[in-house]
Write a protein that binds this DNA or RNA. Structure first.
Length: 817
DNA sequence: CATAGCGTGTTTCTC
DNA sequence: ACACGCTATG
């Protein structure tokens, strides 16, 4: 730190000293900054969260009351992490922490009436607003031949992020698409207001407007939130900027943290200028650069640095680290996507088998979600536990959305999207035509659709039979709504029963399909119960629905689970893993095809790879294929141009990925380079017609025979044997997770991957309703119910001293008998 | 009004 | 390949 004595300059000296003890000079500098704007440029792995949490603790130690501080993050997960860490430094403090959207949602609850809403307003999620958008397009009477609903929604969303109102938008010079969108925009907004609803963008927009048009309130809130900290500032959009700026006029104690090199959300309105120009906006700003990396090896860091240097629009940072050199970064190319997936899965199995790593040490990143499929398949086939962040999202499932829609309608009778969803679910003889007529009536009278349904008799165009059906639905609704204030669990069970949704699900779900909608509904109910327990004070329906709306499945990522993590590069931001694979580093994929038109997007793709690389702590492999199946057909592939920007001479380059120690332990170790490809090889026609220019002097076979890169020269022969053993052990029990075999594999001898994974626990299918199980802590119990699938499969078990829920894939449960 | 079968369009995804 | 949305049919 610049001034070693500064810590002692006040009474809280002791306290401060403890806070500052383990920090570097620039970190101390940032932590001790109290008043005035501050910009923290924090490279990857530079202890950013640490600095932010320590600074908050420091502010508190200076006597600043907790309620004057607000920390805004980009994701819930980041907020949770921060809260956890602050709690260790300053237990029991009540600093506001959360996402921008949650922050705005809460302000809006209070000041709803000032923007024309009621306090029980609903938050439309993406699919809700898409539905609403379609209706608005219809009502606006515009043609969708030149702009799809999605495109229109995109234009409007961008406009909102830039604080452009419908009136302003219509006055602008517009492209044909934007012209269409500009016509829909005011209609859409009016319908939202009628429905007493907002979309995600509105949360920010309304608050920004609120602050802009109500100087008195703005001043009040500026006073209230005197210290504002913003994380991931490079990903903020104009609306978010306007909000924090408005709250930092009288008390400009705004401190933002970010890294322009990690800005990867430009495509959805994030404005890199917010961070690049921060110093212009606040001339008195204190800028702190955190350039020391605590996460990665120099090998990883050099690769990342070389890459990102190729970007023009950036602030140069000099990343450095004191960490050990580590292993060289691997650049590997495979014949095709299957080989890539199989090889990676094999390596993971081998590493786990020989105790060099555990499943949760590994992460596999890719550009597109669809690329996780083959990896998923390969991992599952070997019994490796994995989690996909952002696979099929729980809250997006039909049955979940249906049940939630009933609840939404109870909470906000204006929720037209919810009404449209449930009015005929289960089917009640209310068809599309009837719904449309209700809609028209609602639009004409500017009332919610439920109101239209109540007045069904007034709608002449409605058949008598339809009127009766609609009235029946209204009656069902009223019975449910009468219980609005009951505990969540009771309410939800009543909904499912009263609406006959339970019967509907039983009837619809076929046995062959292994998804279990009813189980998912159960899981939703237990989520509600959980919420009730955790928020006994504000455990209202409204709070639960808000929570659900503002929570994403990315937040469900659990780093402590013993599982390999699969995710997109975007989702990887903010995380770190000991061992990282980045797959599909290929032209048109990693610089994505659609990003090549302009420089800004191209640079964003480079940042995306940079983010991925810098997640790795000790080991990293980038890979690409010679051919890859995309949308059904296999095509030759050109390696990513980014690969040529890396320090290839210091990386370890490996061609072909056949795990010879796995399949062909008989092959000699001389490395003739002439591969006898085992049966697993798919569609190989050896001579690739694509040239791979990875720089000069590549000696691709040289490295292959030594090891697989986890630990150089560590008794390769033993590893080979164990790997094989692991493979066989797994192969003997294929797809253990889904096997019908109820026998518990012999766990006495094997100390392998199979031990860690499949062999250790019975197949999930062994756990059924009524099964007697034993738990290490709770003793014997009986399974009451099972729900969910794969790694998410849950069981509710009754023990002597109460009931517990378990994730079957990981719980320490044994089948008794 | 419900459903099966066809045609279309596919990045990234937070809240 | 696959999922989703629309349309023709029962």
């Amino acid at each position: 730190m610049d001034d070693p004595d500064s810590a002692a300059r006040d009474d809280a000296g002791h306290n401060n000293h403890a806070l500052l003890r383990e920090l570097t000079a620039p970190q101390c500098d940032a932590v001790q900054h109290v008043d005035g704007p501050m910009l923290i440029l924090a490279g990857p792995g530079s202890g950013k969260t640490r600095v932010v949490t320590h600074r908050i603790a420091y502010l508190l130690s200076q006597g600043i009351p907790d309620w004057q501080i607000a920390a805004l993050t980009f994701t819930n997960k980041a907020a949770d992490e921060m809260r956890l860490r602050l709690d260790k430094l300053a237990p029991g403090q009540n600093v506001w922490m959360g996402t921008f959207h949650r922050f705005c949602a809460q302000l809006l609850r209070r000041y709803a009436s000032m923007v024309g809403l009621q306090e029980n307003y609903s938050i439309y999620d993406t699919s809700d607003s898409k539905q609403a958008m379609k209706r608005a397009i219809e009502a606006a009477g515009v043609s969708t031949t030149h702009a799809s609903p999605d495109q229109i929604a995109g234009v409007i969303s961008k406009a909102k992020n830039k604080l452009v109102t419908p009136e302003v938008m219509q006055g602008q010079m517009l492209s044909p698409k934007e012209t269409v969108a500009a016509k829909v925009y005011p209609v859409y907004q009016r319908q939202l207001l009628t429905a007493n609803a907002v979309d995600f963008d509105d949360l920010l927009l309304h608050v920004a407007n609120l602050l802009r048009h109500n100087p008195e309130l703005r001043g009040e809130l500026d006073q209230r939130f005197r210290y504002i900290l913003v994380d991931e500032y490079q990903d903020t959009n104009l609306a978010q900027y306007a909000i924090v700026r408005a709250l930092s006029i009288d008390h400009p104690n705004l401190s933002v943290t970010g890294d322009p090199d990690q800005s990867i959300y430009g495509w959805r309105g994030a404005d890199l200028n917010n961070i690049l120009d921060f110093e212009k906006d606040y001339p008195a700003v204190k800028t702190v650069r955190l350039e020391q990396n605590y996460r990665s090896t120099p090998n990883v860091l050099r690769v990342a640095d070389q890459l990102i240097r190729h970007n023009r629009r950036r602030k140069q940072k000099d990343l450095f680290t004191d960490n050990d050199e580590g292993e060289p970064v691997i650049l590997r190319w495979y014949e095709n996507g299957y080989e890539e997936a199989d090889s990676i899965a094999d390596e993971i199995v081998a590493a786990i088998a020989s105790d060099r790593a555990r499943p949760n040490d590994f992460a596999i990143f890719c550009r597109m979600n669809s690329l996780t499929r083959s990896l998923e398949h390969a991992l599952r086939g070997r019994g490796v536990p994995y989690q996909i962040v952002n696979g099929v999202e729980f809250y997006q499932r039909k049955e979940i959305k249906d049940v939630l829609a009933y609840l939404h309608l109870v909470n906000n009778p204006g929720h037209d999207v919810a009404l449209s969803r449930v009015i005929n679910t289960p089917t009640r003889g209310i068809g599309a035509k009837t719904v449309q007529r209700l809609q028209e009536f609602a639009d004409r009278h500017n009332v919610p659709m439920l109101e239209a349904a109540r007045r069904a008799e007034e709608i002449e165009s409605l058949a008598k039979r339809s009127v009766t059906m609609v009235q029946k639905f209204v009656a069902i609704y009223d019975r449910i709504a009468a219980r609005a204030t009951a505990p969540l669990e009771e309410l939800m069970r009543f909904v499912v029963q009263e609406s006959q949704y339970d019967k509907y699900l039983e009837k619809t779900s076929d046995e062959s399909d292994d998804s279990s909608p009813l189980g998912n509904v159960d899981e939703l109910i237990s989520a509600a119960v959980d919420f009730d327990r955790r928020h006994p004070d504000d455990g209202s329906l409204e709070a639960f629905l808000e929570q659900v709306a503002l929570v994403s499945d990315t937040d469900a990522f659990e780093e402590n689970d013993q599982r390999v993590t699969l995710m997109t590069l975007h989702a990887s931001k903010g995380l770190e893993f000991p061992r990282v694979f980045i797959v599909g580093v290929e032209d048109d994929l990693l610089p994505h095809k659609r990003s090549k038109e302009d420089d800004a997007q191209f640079e964003e793709e480079r940042r995306l790879l940079f983010v991925g690389i810098t997640r790795a702590k000790e080991w990293l492999q980038l890979s690409c294929c010679k051919r890859r199946m995309i949308r059904g057909d296999t095509r030759p592939v050109i390696p990513s141009p980014f690969l040529n920007e890396l320090p290839l001479e210091e990386m370890k380059r490996i061609e072909s990925a056949v795990e010879r120690n796995f399949f062909d332990s008989h092959i000699d170790q001389s490395g003739s380079g002439d591969w006898d490809l085992p049966a697993i090889q798919i569609g190989d026609d050896a001579q690739a017609d694509v040239s791979f220019d990875f720089g000069a002097n590549q000696d691709v076979n040289q490295d292959i025979n030594q090891d697989d890169g986890f630990e150089p020269s560590d008794e390769p022969s033993r590893q080979t044997k164990e790997s094989t053993a692991a493979f066989e052990a797994v192969a003997d029990e294929p797809a253990a997770a889904t096997s019908a075999s109820d026998s518990i594999p012999d766990i006495g001898k094997l100390k392998t991957a199979a031990d860690l994974m499949s062999a250790k626990r019975p197949p999930l299918s062994a756990f059924r309703e009524g099964t007697t199980v034993r738990h290490f802590d709770y003793g014997e119990g009986t399974i009451l119910a099972v729900s969910g699938l794969g790694p998410k499969r849950m069981a509710r078990v009754r023990f002597a001293d109460g009931e517990h829920n378990f994730r079957l894939a990981f719980a320490k449960l044994e089948v008794v008998g």
